[in-house]
Design a binder for these strands. Structure first.
Length: 220
DNA sequence: TCGATGATTGAG
DNA sequence: TCAATCATCGAA
């Protein structure tokens, strides 16, 4: 197997969020004959410790956010707006007390028909292009909180592909700490226009991109 | 206890 | 543009 090990998550949360772009998120459903549902992570956001006003960890540990203070490499699932679950993976460096990466979107890879059933929609671009859509497509609920994603489990993260480029912007749907540029989006490189194109499987947003990491695009 | 508040989505 | 919807959390 090529599951990402715990040390991958034991680094600054922003670094982990950025490097999760292109990795493969797997969901194992069922018991005796489990179905595999998976996708490439195309959008993620970093949420920091007690110094990040937008983070659930800002006011210290509570019943809801306790996973953010536990070992890194575990799932942190919570209910948002009373209707949608959001899926995070805990990650922070040794000198931080908490942190997590919100997985906002994946490009469907395996088990598309299963995801379509959970989502009750056909359009692949709408299957998991948003944190609430993603958890619905993967059937991740509150009881999936605390899963260790670094060992064979119902949720794991494996090596995937190297993104041609990664776009950076401020985080979506927050009112505090909007200056932090901690949202990362998988991007292709348009060689004709010499521009990065954000993945169509990422959530549609009007955030302006403030930086581009070009991984292996060719300059002319 | 009680009221305010979202790391959102889908319909109109 | 806007309502739906409810667990969580801090204040009372």
């Amino acid at each position: 197997m090529n599951i990402l090990n715990r040390s991958f998550y034991a680094r600054p949360t922003q670094d982990v969020a950025k490097e999760l772009i292109g990795k493969k998120l797997l969901r194992l459903l069922g018991g005796s004959s489990p179905h595999i549902v998976s996708g490439i992570i195309v959008e993620a956001e970093a949420y920091g410790s007690t110094d990040d006003e937008a983070s659930h960890a800002f006011n210290g540990m509570s019943a809801r956010n306790s996973m953010m203070f536990e070992d890194v490499g575990r799932s942190y699932v919570y209910l948002s707006y009373g209707t949608h679950f959001c899926f995070n993976i805990t990650a922070h460096s040794a000198n931080e007390s908490a942190g997590a990466v919100l997985i906002r979107a994946i490009q469907p890879l395996e088990g598309l028909s299963i995801m379509r059933r959970f989502r009750a929609i056909d359009d692949p671009f709408l299957i998991a292009s948003g944190p609430g859509r993603l958890t619905q497509a993967l059937n991740i609920k509150k009881n999936d909180n605390g899963v260790d994603v670094t060992v064979p489990n119902s949720i794991i993260v494996e090596n995937g592909i190297v993104p041609p480029a990664i776009l950076v912007s401020s985080r979506i749907g927050i009112s505090k700490a909007t200056n932090k540029q901690w949202r990362y989006v998988f991007a292709h490189w348009d060689h004709h226009a010499d521009l990065p194109l954000s993945s169509r499987y990422a959530s549609r947003s009007r955030q302006t991109y403030t930086a581009v990491y070009q991984i292996c695009g060719t300059n002319s």
